[in-house]
Structures are given as structure tokens and as C-alpha cells.
Amino acid sequence: MKLPPFEYRTPETVEETVELLGEFGDEAKILAGGQSLIPLLAMRLSRPAVVIDINNVNELNTISNGSGLSIGALTRHRTAERSALVQSSAPMLVAALGYVGHDAIRTRGTIGGSVAHADPAAELPTVLTALGGSVSATSARGTRSIAADDFFEGFLSTSLADDELLTAIQLPPRPDRSGWSFNEFSRRSGDFALVGVAVSIELDESGTVVDARIAMSGVAGEPTRAIEAETALRGNPAGPESFATAAAAAAAEINPSADLHGTTAYRKHLAGILVRKGLNEACDRAKGTR
């Protein structure tokens, strides 16, 4: 398990990086934290001609709060986890980061890398989807914002063009009376989840669900919104009855494939369990009782 040969480039600015991406396109792979790319290279499942290492692009290493939270692509998981700004603005992200691998993975792993790699079982794409976040994609042609719902396109696949660099993720501000939760079940501590569920819920003063976003990992090729569950919740009182209905709807609207670690029926069941649990927790947070 040794890496294949590749050309290695180390740009220091976004401009240089996108220039290289423009030159090499799909021949190139971006190396950020390396926690996914290096194993793929070692197993020779990925054969880029050029590896563009962005670890020296310091402008990508930022966390800022304007109209929502913006986290630069090169921000390490550990840095984000420990950031007071992230803790106060995006507690769901912090909770989810706690499930990402282990300390020695999170010290290197990056926010942008996790999102761009788009592993369907990974935590951050699910969080981004549940929070209705977006990514910034920069190329020589300019910068565009891509909503999470439009970004993830299938197994390890995104709508990022070959010449585009994911430079940051954005998470919108949290509305009043909103709550969040992140839960997942994995076979061992630190493993990718069999199923993960991120819930973002907004209530009105009477406790009726104004809006709910539920994103699931591990149930399809990309992070998956439980659209029918969300619809079932909207306009209904938050509570055991509507949560049970939503959980059943979430389990019913997915058709996860079976693998070594869990059957289709098991994953559907787990999704229902985690959605109900997640709705309870998110609702408690929205009501300030958690």
C-alpha cells in the first residue's frame, strides 16, 4: 500500500491554486488534511497526475462571523471544535466533529476536505445539509456559492467543477426558537456512522413547527434530506405524535443499500430511531429545556 507517483504542487494562494486547477482539471487532486485522500492513494484507488497541496494557502485558514458563520476550507477539525465562535454559532457542527474519527485524525482533517470528499457516511456534509449551509467555490472564472442541497451529487461526488476549489463553508445564522441535534450510530467508537441524523428545527411561540430540516448520512450516496418527514412536521405541534409520524416517514422514504455492517431494513429502522431521538433533542433545545 504505497502511493503511486504524482506531480506535487504547493501553491500559497487561492489564485495560484485555481490557476493550477485550471491547468490540470480532473487530472489534479487537492490535498488538504489528507485523511481521506492519502488512504485512497495508498490503495491506489485514486490516480491523480498532480496533487495540489493547499496546506500553505493560509488565506483558507479562517473562521469568521458576518451574516452567518464562514469557515475556511483549510480549518482543521480540531481548530473548529475548539473555536469559541464555532461553539456559539454552530454547536451542531461542534457536536458532529466529536464523531469524526479520533483526535489524531481531527488534528489534520479539514472542514473543506470533509465536505469536498462527500463521503455519504461522513458527518460534515450531513451538518451542512441540515443547517441549509452552502459552500464557496472559486475558480479562475470567479467565485460562486453552492447550496448544500445542490452540492452533494452522489457517492464521493459533488457539483464542484474540475477547475473549482472549495474555499469555505457558510452556515446561516440560527433563527430564534430554533434547536438542533446531531446523533449517529456506528459499530465502534470513531467509525463512520451506519446512520447519522442531523436535525434543525424552528418553532413558533405556541410550539408549532415552523420549519424543520432533517439530514441523514449513511442511507444513500449523498447526505439525504428526509423531505417527507420535514413536510409532516411543518405546521404541526412539536411533540411525540408528530415526531413519531416524522420518524416513520423518514424511515419509509429511504432505501439504503446493505453492506457488511448493516442490512437495508436495519438502516431504515436506525434512521427512524435517530430521527425521533434527534427531533426530541432539537425540540428541547428550541424550547430552551435542554
Partner: peptide, 8 residues
């Protein structure tokens, strides 16, 4: 702490 197999 880092995994030295996952860095160049």
C-alpha cells in the same frame, strides 16, 4: 497527535 502514514 497525527497519523504519520497519512502525511507526506
Amino acid at each position: 497527535p497525527v497519523r504519520s502514514c497519512l502525511m507526506l
